[in-house]
């Protein structure tokens, strides 16, 4: 445990744990509304923010937050108003965001694509004191939203039309989800990188689904997996000199595979228990309904 003595490792671990909590916490709502790749889209847009941060010599983390919130809100607006051309508008937003990032960073004095790499794939060991402050504030926001409004976000993500008829402010909640996702992307940017963020939002949720039957359990297991893999990846990268972002993502996928393999016998056992609980020889299933017999007599 000697790595805990280094300040850079303390910062790295704190940032990693916060990402492990927030990414699946937001990701579960995105998966629920079948927008699993939204995080990836926001990641592309955030590159423009990083580029602008370098160009204007402002903090790339805060600049990326601002631009990705803007991008996420635009995506949500496209989803409302755009019908058939929505996907093309999104494609332009994604690739425009990526191209903008490359352009701005090369315009910045002394800037090159090399500066971008640490944001694309993460650079956990270079997380600074001010980065940690920003990550803590943003993570607190994400946790408050995803836990505090869990019933409302669940309802909206499960059935948007129904949620509107219950009088929920659906547009506001959708925007809030988009903004929270954007904030999470920038929280995770330094840890796993913009190109790998989406994996931490989606894969822990998919892995948790292998075991769970309820939304609450899926949420808890996904966050537990998120925290485990981010700590595991960070510590591994300290001992083995491997890139932490890639290690974390590969560990998450390994967790998914392991749980899938584990889940198959569990599901079989559950099915057997269910079959045993049912009264034997339930006749209701195969009886011919009375109405059918009446129809046959008429001889149509």
């Amino acid at each position: 445990m000697d790595f805990l003595n280094y300040a850079f490792m303390q910062r790295a671990l704190l940032a990693a744990v916060l990402v492990g909590i927030t990414a699946p916490a937001v990701g579960i709502y995105l998966v629920q509304r079948r927008q699993a790749l939204m995080g990836d889209g926001i990641g592309h847009v955030a590159m423009t923010g990083v580029g602008l941060g370098f160009l204007l010599s402002w903090s790339p983390v805060w600049m990326a937050t601002a631009i990705s919130v803007l991008g996420a809100v635009t995506m949500e607006l496209i989803r409302w108003y755009g019908r058939t051309r929505g996907d093309i508008a999104l494609a332009m937003l994604f690739y425009g965001g990526m191209a903008g990032g490359v352009m701005f960073i090369n315009l910045a004095p002394g800037g090159s694509n090399a500066n971008l790499t640490s944001y694309l794939f993460g650079s956990l060991s270079t997380v600074s004191e001010s980065d940690v402050t920003a990550i803590c504030l943003l993570a607190a926001f994400v946790v408050v939203v995803t836990l505090g409004l869990r019933r409302q976000l669940f309802a909206v993500s499960q059935d948007e039309e129904f949620a509107r008829v219950t009088g929920l402010p659906v547009r506001a909640l959708n925007l809030l989800t988009a903004i929270t996702a954007a904030v999470t992307v920038t929280v995770a940017m330094r840890v796993v990188g913009l190109l790998l963020v989406s994996a931490l939002m989606v894969v822990p949720v998919a892995a948790a689904q292998q075991l769970s039957r309820s939304f609450a359990a899926t949420f808890a297991i996904a966050v537990a997996i998120g925290v485990t893999v981010t700590i595991g990846g960070t510590v591994t990268s300290y001992y083995q000199d491997v890139p932490p972002g890639a290690t974390i993502v590969l560990l998450t996928i390994a967790a998914f595979i392991a749980l899938s393999v584990l889940a198959a016998p569990l599901a079989r056992r559950r099915a057997r228990a269910l079959a045993a609980a049912q009264p034997a020889g339930d006749p209701a299933e195969c009886a011919i309904p009375a109405t059918r017999a009446a129809g046959d007599e008429v001889g149509v």
Partner: peptide, 20 residues
Amino acid sequence: TAAGGVPATVTEIVSSGRLS
């Protein structure tokens, strides 16, 4: 279907009708 992209129990789904 009442299902979404994430597992949910019958109670969890019915509870969202009570939010109002």
